[in-house]
């Protein structure tokens, strides 16, 4: 009986916290369906009185799908590269930590990447990008950011927890080092791969400053630049910006929903987290 009571109480606390955290987004979504005359008129109402999808229509007719496509391309390609190189690097740093001298030093250098505010390097980074001829080129937005210390760190953490005997056994069987990595160890890290996939897609989807500086062709613009451009010279175009924001949330949320059980676990999950 007592147990039941505390269960109800704790469940209520958790659900209420979750709803509170979710609410601003719900409010954003509901507002985006209000006609402009309702947006600013008191008293505010939770649900639109005259439901309209005009804002969405006008945002989409302005070529928004093109920007979504660009962002998707950036996110997908960037993520594939990030996964490949982070897994390689994190694996090497973990598995060879006892056999190669410089592993910790190499890892230390990569750690610099999280400590230094990358934003302050923007201009010098841009100089390198344009020197390489990647200006106004989608690769100029992808390549500079695919190496992420977080990704390397995650794989390294995972492979540190794998018993070395796995590797030793395979070596004794005569498997090459890279075969061990690709065929035996990489598939093991599935949950790390899934988590990093979501992180990476999210980062690339939300990138703003680098695309802004590197891309100068409207056709190559990403979704975040497009949203920012609704903040006009003489004020914010709230109608469009609300609709555009909601559209921008959808793809990443869908991806999250698909991967969700790996990321947040399920009700029954226990101890199977990598």
């Amino acid at each position: 009986m007592k147990k039941n009571k505390s269960s109800i109480l704790l469940t209520t606390i958790s659900v209420v916290s979750a709803l509170l955290i979710l609410f601003p987004i719900v409010w954003l979504i509901l507002s985006s369906f209000k006609p402009s005359s309702e947006l600013f008129s008191y008293p505010l109402r939770l649900f639109p009185k005259n439901f309209t999808i005009d804002h969405y229509k006008s945002v989409i007719s302005g070529g928004f799908f093109g920007y979504i496509y660009n962002s998707l391309f950036l996110a997908v390609v960037g993520t594939i590269i990030t996964l490949a190189i982070s897994a390689m690097c994190g694996y090497a740093l973990a598995i060879y930590r006892d056999s190669i001298k410089y592993t910790n030093l190499v890892f230390g250098v990569f750690l610099l990447g999280t400590l230094i505010p990358g934003e302050t390097l923007t201009i010098s980074q841009f100089s390198v990008i344009s020197f390489m001829g990647l200006y106004n080129n989608i690769w100029g937005v992808i390549l500079p950011v695919v190496t992420t210390t977080t990704g390397i760190f995650m794989y390294r953490q995972y492979y540190m927890s794998v018993p070395m005997s796995f590797v030793e056994a395979a070596r004794i069987d005569g498997a090459s080092e890279l075969y061990i990595f690709r065929k035996i160890m990489l598939p093991l890290a599935k949950s790390t791969t899934v988590t990093l996939t979501l992180f990476s897609v999210m980062w690339r989807w939300n990138d703003y400053i680098l695309p802004l500086l590197v891309l100068s062709d409207q056709k190559k613009y990403t979704i975040q630049i497009a949203i920012k451009n609704f903040i006009g010279n003489t004020g914010v175009d709230w109608n469009s910006i609300l609709a555009a924001s909601v559209i921008s949330i959808i793809p990443i949320t869908v991806l999250f929903m698909i991967l969700q059980k790996y990321i947040v676990g399920t009700d029954t999950a226990s101890g199977d987290k990598g």
């Binding site: 344009s130 802004l212 500086l213 100068s216 409207q218 920012k228 010279n233």
Partner: peptide
């Protein structure tokens, strides 16, 4: 026509970059 939108404030940052890249 090919239209590029860059807000006034960002133009100040972006224009020299465009010049340097002959774009």
């Amino acid at each position: 026509l090919k239209t590029v939108v860059i807000p006034y404030d960002d133009q100040l940052t972006k224009f020299p970059l465009m010049l340097k890249n002959k774009d």
